[in-house]
Design a protein around this nucleic acid. Structure first.
Lengths: 90, 90
DNA sequence: CGTGCATGTGCACGTACGCGCACAGAGGCT
DNA sequence: AGCCTCTGTGCGCGTACGTGCACATGCACG
């Protein structure tokens, strides 16, 4: 699942939690966060602290991966493009 | 790159930023965050808000992906295992 | 050596976090 | 109908956030 914002994250966490058959109370205890906060997170709260988010992610046996955005079909390497932009007129 | 905690995230952001030839000032302006905060983020601050993190991630042309943790070589499906645990003694 | 840029960091401010508690609404089960 | 579980949410508290500013260090260049 691709996460682009807090709402995505919240929905994904909720779905994952349900898939594992957990309640908010159980997951919050497992992750060491309050149920109150978890409820807000699942609702897409954008001000949630990433440290707590990582705790929840681990408790859900999830892996978080970051990678450069997909190259367009035009086959231009975005990394090089941006870097060139910077080094040429920066 | 696999991100497991705030420190990972910070280091990854820093490396990615440098790879694109950006300074903290440039990236912070592009992402709409303060340079102060970006500096802290790259240092691994665990209390950073995920909303701002997503802004930086986008500004770096990055994709964030979440997925179930890898299954052990023992071939037990962790999802099923956890779900069964819950439904049988919950 | 002096200048300029990149980065880290202390400070003060206004704001909102995350927490626990308590209650309300919605289902499900008997 | 009555009961129990799950979830959302208002409130109040103590705390730390994120921001902007200013300064210091480190490094490259002429």
């Amino acid at each position: 699942m691709r996460l682009t914002n807090a709402r995505d994250l919240g929905l994904f966490v909720r779905e994952r939690r349900r898939r594992l058959g957990m309640t908010q109370t159980e997951l919050s205890g497992l992750a060491g966060v309050s149920r109150r906060w978890l409820s807000d997170l699942e609702a897409g709260k954008p001000t949630a602290e990433i440290g707590l988010v990582f705790r929840v992610v681990h408790a859900l046996a999830l892996t978080l991966e970051a990678r450069p955005a997909e190259a367009e079909p035009g086959a231009i390497d975005l990394d090089d493009l941006l870097r060139d932009l910077r080094t040429s007129r920066g």
